[in-house]
């Protein structure tokens, strides 16, 4: 977890006014945050909502206290609140529940078969996630996309860790069940490498990043 240590240090330095450190924090956390926001508001609005979240993060960073994991959780909570505002304002349903056309269109534009498959897989996955009860979906997404542990995810959601653990567990069961019923998705997913795997990244500032997932480029 050297990455986490780096992120923790970068957060601290940023709190002391180090702009380079803030940039490192941004680059380390933004991809996850954006992914998380995508599950909440959909692809179209995700960038805007994430940007709003970052503005608030920048302003309130001074008041934050904690390590890398807590920072991700804190950032996620801010992003979540912004997303909920956004949803209320637009009268939209959360995108967990997904907008398949967007995702499909996106897949069609991808250059390589690998990317297309992954995008499609992501789309399918979002679609599956969207079929989970909201609390289960959020628990799973916070754990998997934001990379939070159960306790931090619970803090983010304002719930007890036990409740979030249970919700995530049930969410996985439900997912497994849906997968069993959905051969098409299963087929797409079979094209993917089996495991998410930590991978070192070329990006300097992103060395802070905790890259536990494959990236499209990696395909």
């Amino acid at each position: 977890m050297g990455d986490d240590a780096e992120l923790t240090a970068a957060v601290l330095a940023a709190q002391n006014g180090d702009e380079t450190a803030f940039r490192a924090v941004y680059r380390a956390v933004h991809p996850r945050l954006l992914g998380y926001v995508r599950t909440l508001v959909g692809d179209l609005d995700a960038e805007d909502v994430a940007s709003e979240a970052w503005l608030q993060i920048a302003r309130d960073l001074e008041r934050f206290g904690g390590d890398a994991d807590r920072f991700r959780g804190w950032a996620a909570r801010i992003a979540r609140n912004r997303a909920l505002d956004h949803i209320r304002m637009r009268g939209r349903r959360p995108a967990i529940g997904g907008d398949e056309t967007e995702l499909t269109g996106r897949a069609a534009e991808c250059d390589t078969a690998g990317e297309a498959i992954e995008a499609l897989a992501t789309g399918r996955t979002l679609d599956l996630i969207a079929r989970l009860p909201q609390d289960q979906a959020e628990a799973v997404v916070l754990r998997v996309v934001m990379g939070l542990d159960a306790k931090t995810a619970a803090d983010t959601l304002g719930k007890r860790p036990g409740a979030v653990r249970t919700a995530a567990h049930r969410g996985l069961k439900k997912l497994a069940e849906l997968l069993g019923d959905d051969p098409e998705t299963a087929g797409v997913l079979d094209a993917l490498p089996p495991q998410r795997r930590p991978r070192s990244r070329a990006v300097t500032s992103a060395s802070v990043t905790q890259a536990s997932a494959r990236t499209q480029k990696d395909m």
Binding site: P31, E118, T185, L189, R196, V203, S205, Q216
Partner: peptide, 26 residues
């Protein structure tokens, strides 16, 4: 299968970053 599904989900949070490329909201 479940692991792959989660991997795909996790990929959401792992958009590639390049050092020389500025992110939209950066």
């Amino acid at each position: 299968r479940l692991a792959r599904t989660l991997a795909a989900l996790s990929a959401l949070g792992a958009e590639p970053l390049r050092a020389d490329e500025e992110l939209p909201g950066e």
